[in-house]
Structure formats: C-alpha cells, structure tokens
Deep mutational scan, measured.
Amino acid sequence: MATGGRRGAAAAPLLVAVAALLLGAAGHLYPGEVCPGMDIRNNLTRLHELENCSVIEGHLQILLMFKTRPEDFRDLSFPKLIMITDYLLLFRVYGLESLKDLFPNLTVIRGSRLFFNYALVIFEMVHLKELGLYNLMNITRGSVRIEKNNELCYLATIDWSRILDSVEDNYIVLNKDDNEECGDICPGTAKGKTNCPATVINGQFVERCWTHSHCQKVCPTICKSHGCTAEGLCCHSECLGNCSQPDDPTKCVACRNFYLDGRCVETCPPPYYHFQDWRCVNFSFCQDLHHKCKNSRRQGCHQYVIHNNKCIPECPSGYTMNSSNLLCTPCLGPCPKVCHLLEGEKTIDSVTSAQELRGCTVINGSLIINIRGGNNLAAELEANLGLIEEISGYLKIRRSYALVSLSFFRKLRLIRGETLEIGNYSFYALDNQNLRQLWDWSKHNLTITQGKLFFHYNPKLCLSEIHKMEEVSGTKGRQERNDIALKTNGDQASCENELLKFSYIRTSFDKI
C-alpha cells in the first residue's frame, strides 16, 4: 500500500482533458527560462521544448504516446526543470519506465491550478516501474492521483506527508504495488545497510526511497516546507523545498512566496507586481503582455491589467481597466465587458449561442446573426445582446428569417469595421425574408467608422429604411451602385405612401 494514499474509496472516473512563447529569463536562482504550460502528445517531438525550461508557468501534460519505446527515452533528460506552477499529468506514455532521468531536479509542483483537485496525476502508464522524482520536495496545493499503472512499484516507500501538507485526498490505487509483488529495495538494503531515512506512518517504520538508488530526502521537522541542505541544516524561511546553503534567500532552489532578481522575498516591493503567484514583474512586463494579447485571437491570451499590486489576466467583477495605466478602477454604474472572439468572429444561430455573449459591452471581433427560429426570440436576444455598444469588426445579418427588427441591439452605437466582410463591408444584410426595420432612427444613433453597407434580398425592408441608415451611420456616399439592390429590397412591402385627393359631386333626387 502506498504510504499516505487512500484505498478502496469510491472515486469519480478520471477524465483526461485534452506555445513556446518565453516569458522571460528567471535569473540567477533558476538555471534556465520560464516556459508556458505545455500539452505534449502523440510523439516526442515537442518534448524537446523543455530543454531550457527551469519553470513551467502553467501545467505540463505528457500523454497518448503509443509508439514510443524505452530506448526512445534513454537520452532524454531535462535537468534544468525545477518547478511547475500548476500540475504534472502523465497518461498512456508507452515505453517510459521512470522519471528519474527525465526530470531529475523537479523540486516543486505548486498546484496553482489543479487537474480535478490533483497536482500530480500518473494514470495508465503501462510501462512505468517507478516514479523516480527523487528531488520532489513540495506539492504546495492539491493532491496526488496514481492509478492503474500495472508495473509501478516504489510507492509504499514514499512518505507523501513530507511532500504535501495533507495526504487525506491522495488516491493511489490499482498499481502493481497493490499486489505486494514489488519487493522494493532501498539503497544499501541488499548489503544489509540502512542508507535512507525511515519514518513512521500508520504504525509502520519504513525506509523512504524513490528507487533502488535514490533515497527520499527527509528534512528535520523544524525546517517545515522550506527544505534543508545535504547536511540537514534548514533553508531560509522564504525558500521552498530545498537550498544549497542554509538561511540564505539567494540560495533557495525555489521560493515559498515570490522570486525577485535572484532572491526569494515575502512580497513584491514597489515598483514590482505579483505575477502568477510566484514571481515579481515590473510595469513594462505587464504592459507588454497586455499589448501582445490586445489584437491576438490565441486562446488563453489575456490583456493583463494591474489590481491590488498584482498583474492579473482581467479586472475583477465591479472594476474596469483604465487604459492609460492598466489599473483596475471601480465602475460607475454597470461595468464594461470586452469579449474577445477566439477566431475573430462568432455566429449567433440560437439563443444558446447568444447567451455566451451575455453582459458583453464591447465585441472584439465580428458578429454573424443567422437565426431561423426560436421561442420568445426578441426578448431572449435583447437579454443577451442588448448591452453590446461596440463591435470592432463587422455585423452580418444573414438568412435570419425569424427577425423582424434589429432593435434587440438596443445599445449598439459603434461598428468600427477594423475587419470587413469580403474585404469591403462593415454591415452586411443578406436574404432576411421578414426583416422590416433596422432601428427606430428617431431614437437610435449608430456610427460606422469604416467599410460599406450591403443589402440584398431583404424583400420587406424598404429602401427608405436603408437610406436612413446611410445618413445616420455616416456611410452615405461610400456605397457603390450594386451594394444596395434596388429590386430585391422592399419588393414585397408597401414602401411608397402617396396622399390621394378626392373630389365629389353631391346629387339628390331633384338636383344634379
């Protein structure tokens, strides 16, 4: 039985969820670079991206490699990797027998973001014989899940209580170790020597080791999670996991709180800001991140802002960003909400898709409305799209047979046209069989910064309504002859009103 693990408890099935942008060198404390989270699957090609990484700022997932063999891993080693800020997950990587050479110096898994409450997941690794993470000293947050690894031993010899604050939620089941077939031998045991430290858990006094050649490092209890030197002297209180010299914040392997210019500090002093819960960055760093993602459509890219001495992905609820200094300031009234469309555009074809934009005031991208039916549609669209004030790209209304009016965009005031449909149009209306009105132009103002209007096959939309939009939106004169079809717009509506004058002759039985 794995020490510190839980057996036999019912657990939810383990679901495996399925960018080499360097964020800056980590400095003297770390020998390499800070790398983003990685999802490495199918083959070993991307694994080489770990070569210079000291910190993975995010998670590391290595999974679904069915053609790899043990010899493929023999020359692979990433000794610079010290810390993973989120979680480490391995799933069905064939041929991998140990992690001792792959990650010989991995010391800390912070667990800032977890995989279903777990910071370390080893699942269905069919050839893994031992973990071998002999320098792993601290899992700051989260638990361990090690399950269905039929060859995995050296679990009962690990004292997880020396690595985690609590072992109650560890789930370590259905491994070879369960069948008591392992016969784990710690260093020196074969020669009758006791080389590794022994600890007591559940009444068992057991030597602690990761492999037959690597003991588990056990520091004096007084050192807590700070770690200790090879001689057993406690590291500085700002260290986490390990250090090369005692009581020196510049000799830590990793930091308990924050890293700044080669030393570990309790908090980031001005003019620095907390970033990702582990390091200090200056304003320029946060500003660069903001600008890199301002026009990016890459998933996970955030326009970072500053709030409460932190550089964070977005302002919290009730705050909006001051564009001059990136500071989050309290909103006066309802907060603006910028919604970034991942692929640059979004099609609204149902109430469900409209709900995804609920509360958005600025759309960074283009909207395509293609709704053919739905219950209580006008009210639903207004509830979900009615706060949109600005669209950076274009607005396209296409084959939306259920629409009679666009009044559900009740606050839309600006279409920038930074991206144009077919390279020309910022407003595009095609084949809307029941569209009769755009907006009530006596109450609604709309500016279209650039781009043209396109109207074709809107049989109940009168040309007068379209011409009014040209005047109000500032697009009059931009359109070419064929942009607004004269014969297919309003051709099934009563669009022309003329005053009919009647004269009559009164007659009676005795007068003409």
Rank of each mutant, 00 (worst) to 15 (best):
L155K: 04
C186F: 08
K176A: 13
I222M: 09
T157E: 05
R92S: 10
G203T: 13
T211A: 05
T320G: 13
D72L: 10
Y87L: 00
E147L: 14
I82F: 12
I84Q: 00
N138M: 14
R263I: 02
C235G: 00
L131R: 00
Q299P: 08
I312Q: 11
I172F: 03
F275T: 04
C223H: 03
T107P: 00
T229H: 03
L152F: 03
D247P: 01
H127T: 03
S161V: 07
N308M: 04
P330V: 08
C234N: 01
C280M: 00
S77E: 05
Q245R: 05
V167D: 04
F78I: 03
K191M: 08
Q61R: 05
A119W: 01
C243N: 00
G300S: 12
T140A: 10
N322E: 00
T194N: 09
I122P: 11
M65R: 02
E314K: 12
P104W: 00
C223T: 01
D248Q: 12
P197H: 10
T140M: 06
S213K: 06
T189H: 05
I185F: 15
E238G: 13
L164R: 04
V121S: 10
L120P: 00
T320C: 12
D75N: 15
K67I: 06
Y272M: 15
G37Q: 10
H291E: 13
D177P: 11
V253Y: 11
P336L: 11
K310Y: 11
Q245P: 02
E147M: 14
R145L: 12
F258N: 02
G32N: 12
M137H: 10
N42I: 03
N135M: 15
V218H: 10
P313D: 13
L50N: 02
C182D: 10
N105A: 07
G192M: 11
E130I: 10
T85A: 05
N52W: 06
K67P: 12
N150F: 05
H290G: 10
K191L: 05
L63Q: 15
T45S: 03
T267L: 03
L63P: 00
T68W: 14
R279T: 07
T250P: 01
L60P: 00
K80P: 01
H59K: 15
G262T: 06
F205Q: 14
V55Y: 09
F258I: 01
H302G: 15
S244L: 08
G203V: 09
T157W: 09
D248H: 06
H28D: 07
N202A: 11
I185E: 02
L136A: 01
K224N: 12
M137V: 12
G241L: 02
G58P: 01
S143F: 07
W278M: 02
L289C: 02
F285L: 13
L96R: 00
N295W: 14
N295F: 08
N149K: 01
C182W: 06
E124A: 08
N282C: 15
T189L: 12
F258K: 15
C315Q: 01
T250E: 10
K148H: 15
L332I: 11
V144Q: 01
Q61V: 12
R256I: 06
K148V: 10
P187C: 08
N308S: 09
L120W: 03
M137Q: 08
Q287L: 04
F78L: 10
C53M: 01
Q61L: 08
N202Q: 14
F115A: 12
T189D: 11
L88Q: 01
